[in-house]
Design a protein around this nucleic acid. Structure first.
Lengths: 165, 165
DNA sequence: ACGAGTTGATTGAGCTTTCAACCTTACGGC
DNA sequence: GCCGTAAGGTTGAAAGCTCAATCAACTCGT
């Protein structure tokens, strides 16, 4: 019987590990596999059609939805679930392309505000239809209404556990 | 009314885009957010505890489960849902660390076989408990049995759509 | 048996992400 | 007001991933 890094019952040195049961393993692996495939597909599609990775698209999305199409860097980082460092680098690239501008924050001299430019908005508007179509084709349209709401609840449960401090 | 890159009904130049409905958008965003948070957490945990990214862990897992703890590169790439290029780079790093060895494939002279070493196995065995605990804590234990089976089915549906040639 | 096309795998360049270090500015207590 | 600490944000280096190019070996049709 070989070692099973998700499923084996194995008495070891330190703590008794609660390995995954068959059902749990099946769910985790299906989810993992689906997510790898889906994100790869979406990333490739966006790269091909709009010349940006998905993370950049999400930055543009969040900015486009914000009042004045602008957000504090820290706020933008939270909304995109990105590290500050990642966001800093990404916004620097977006700024080079003229899709975003950074300005000083009026009420906090440490702060920076990122704002979506008209060019950036146009790029987003041009990219959105194909991206949404891909999300639909690969995820949404493959699920029943019941599965769709289950997915939302599952997502919420996971987010609730991880988004605290 | 502002542009909504997932949800707006907008008549544009070329094709009528089927934007996401409120429900659909909610599911997609919850799933997206959950996945970003979860994968980040798992990656950081693995990096901290075992000094490897999650993709490397999965390579070791798949090898550990295979007959003779070894697999053709192309087979390993498929099972880990990785590109060949990514796998090549990754196995090169794993080989540097002595966790994997590559040898020529006996029946196809183009082929390479990756094999998990004893060291690699030991590293995997040492990393597994904490990794499984993290998967459990952040995902599995937050879901009801019903949600768990729903997640498996959702995953299967998405995989079915994307894994075809 | 031979050439065209395909498959298996690797490589290097360029880009993104991570991590830790850093600087500046704000805040809270005394 | 001053000091210690926390918060906002950036930076550079190291590491991983992607893409296109490459090369060798296999397959199939004729």
């Amino acid at each position: 019987m070989s070692f099973q890094p998700y499923g084996k019952v194995s008495i070891l040195i330190a703590v008794a590990t609660r390995w995954l049961t068959g059902e749990e393993q099946r769910a985790w692996r299906a989810y993992l596999e689906a997510t790898l495939l889906l994100f790869d597909a979406l990333d490739r599609e966006l790269q091909r059609e709009a010349n940006m990775p998905h993370a950049y698209y999400e930055i543009l999305v969040r900015l486009s939805e914000a009042h004045g199409r602008s957000l504090r860097m820290s706020e933008l980082a939270e909304r995109t679930r990105s590290s500050r460092s990642r966001l800093s680098h990404a916004v620097a690239r977006l700024e080079e392309r003229g899709w975003v501008v950074r300005r000083d924050c009026p009420d906090d001299r440490r702060g920076q505000v990122a704002e979506l430019t008209d060019d950036g908005f146009a790029v987003l508007a041009a990219a959105a239809p194909k991206h949404v179509a891909a999300v639909r084709e690969h995820l949404i349209d493959r699920l029943s209404p019941h599965q769709l709401s289950a997915l939302a609840e599952i997502g919420d449960a996971v987010v609730a556990g991880l988004s605290e401090r």
